[in-house]
Design a protein around this nucleic acid. Structure first.
Lengths: 197, 197
DNA sequence: CTACATTCATACCAAACGGTACAGAAATGC
DNA sequence: GCATTTCTGTACCGTTTGGTATGAATGTAG
């Protein structure tokens, strides 16, 4: 075992609690008191284990990315562009309204509620979003080459449409929309997807 | 003229400045120092003229509603459901990226950045959104009766789709999307609109 | 048992927050 | 000129913010 007094809390569950607080209150909205209360630890313990508030947010975001945004990677692995769109929108509808965690999207709420633009966490959120965007655009351009999308379709516009609907669903979920509500929105959005004729 | 020492600032332009600050920083993100600096007045002058911070936000929201959300009422006055959808989405794309004021939507940014749920301003934002939603739903149900929409279409779903896309466009604008970008999204969303066959 | 390393709890810090007390300044009414 | 009314500027209030100094507590290594 490591030297010194052992840590009295589980660092993994504490991070999960922090993630929930950031997720439901945003970055600025989550005070250190909110965080330490939810995590069941004191301020110095938090700083010793995670760094400052921004570091903690970044670590929570990492966990969020790998655990809660997995549906995006599943969508990227879809065999066709159509199934990519389906998995993305249906997956978003399901995740955003999953009752086992706060509603909405952490990256949306987090980016909106931090006042300082020079915040490193905000840049990281931008990077995260942009990487997903370019991945989707690349996949859709490949779909055109595969004859999987009409040759005159614009991958950038298609991606932006998907992103717009997904972000809009996040706000809808924050305002109380149910999973069924968002599924209906996803179904309607998919009727705008270009058909192979 | 009224009794007492005259006010040294124009109450109307001061409110416009306050609106811009709330619009770009959100409710919590806008500090009293930000507000008084932008309005060019001192704290006591602000409180004497507008009440507290929440009252000021509400008055700024009133102005926003009548001046910047006029396109929604124009959409509601459209002759057909199809033109309603067009005016709503194209109008949103234009307003959200208008360079003469902050990008995005005040009601989205304002609702997201106030931590206290018991805030009266937040309830007012909810009311505002709900009133627009029911107005659109009513208009769309009337459109079905008019034979203006297929009889099997669901006005609630159609409204939620429009609201989702509009809110998503607000976030896209906040992240730097141009007017042309949002117009393309609006055009694609409109291809999901039910056709009369 | 002692030395060492690490965590814990208390108590504190400066800064920023929303909001206000108070006195002086500028107008009107008499 | 004088009382009254209203606004302005300064200086302040208590609370909350993110962040930390400090010493006791608790473990391992010798």
């Amino acid at each position: 075992m490591a030297l010194g007094r052992p840590r009295a809390f589980d660092i993994d569950t504490a991070l999960n609690r922090a993630l929930e607080v950031f997720w439901s209150k945003g970055f600025d909205g989550a005070s250190l008191t909110d965080l330490t209360d939810a995590m069941g630890i004191s301020r110095p313990s938090l700083y010793a284990a995670f760094g400052n508030k921004e570091d903690l947010f970044r670590k929570a975001l990492d966990r969020y990315k790998t655990e809660k945004m997995a549906y995006i990677n599943e969508a990227l692995a879809a065999p066709t562009a159509r199934t990519l769109a389906e998995r993305l929108l249906f997956g978003a509808a399901a995740m955003l309204t999953d009752p086992s965690h706060p509603v909405g999207c952490l990256s949306v709420k987090g980016a909106m509620t931090c006042k300082d633009d020079s915040l490193i966490a905000k840049e990281e959120l931008d990077q995260l979003r942009q990487s997903f965007e370019t991945s989707i655009i690349d996949r859709l351009t490949r779909a055109i080459a595969d004859g999987d999308l009409p040759p005159d379709s614009d991958p950038v516009v298609l991606q932006r449409f998907l992103g717009t609907v997904a972000m809009g669903m996040s706000l809808q979920a924050s305002q109380g929309a149910t999973a069924a509500d968002l599924m209906a929105v996803a179904r309607m959005a998919l009727t705008a997807w270009p058909a192979l004729r």
